[in-house]
Simulated scan of single mutants.
Amino acid sequence: MAAVGVTGGREALDKLSQHSVDVVVLDVRMPGMDGLEVLQEIKKRWPLVEVILLTGHASVESGLQGMELRAFDYVMKPCKLTELLPKIEQAYERKCPREKARQ
């Protein structure tokens, strides 16, 4: 499993169009496209990709809205890597059987 970082939503979508990606960790607040817009585009173009949203205390509502838009989960910032890694693994484990079923 490899991780790739990007600086914004449009760059994330570009990376997704160039590479096979299983799980995206996405900040709700980003310059340009916000995380919810990127989430909607990901689910439209790559419905099997799982998305975990990072949200601040002031934007819990955004995390819940992301769940309605089919995000796998959301995590409050700041978060520890020990909290985030298990969620990434769970998202990956959820994606794999669904992807095999589509083949």
Rank of each mutant, 00 (worst) to 15 (best):
E41D: 10
A2D: 09
E11G: 07
K44F: 04
I88P: 09
S20T: 11
K95N: 05
F72W: 11
K77R: 08
T7E: 15
V38T: 12
A91S: 07
A3G: 11
K43Y: 05
M67P: 04
T82Q: 14
A12L: 13
E11K: 11
C96W: 14
V4S: 09
T55K: 00
L16R: 03
G5I: 00
A58H: 06
R70H: 14
R29M: 15
D73K: 04
V60K: 03
P47R: 12
G8R: 05
A91P: 08
E83C: 05
V49A: 07
I88Y: 08
I88E: 06
L16C: 03
L54S: 02
Q103T: 15
L81H: 08
V6D: 06
L81N: 07
P97N: 08
Q65H: 10
E41P: 01
T55Y: 00
A71Y: 05
R94D: 12
G9C: 06
Q18D: 13
K95R: 13
T82G: 11
L36I: 10
K87D: 10
V23K: 01
E68K: 14
P78K: 07
K15M: 13
Y74D: 10
R98H: 13
V24F: 08
V23Q: 01
M67Y: 03
G9V: 05
G63D: 06
K80S: 14
G35Y: 02
P97S: 09
V28A: 06
Q103W: 15
A101Y: 12
V23D: 02
W46A: 09
V23P: 02
P78Q: 08
Q18G: 10
V4P: 02
E89F: 13
K15P: 00
E37N: 04
V75G: 04
V75Q: 05
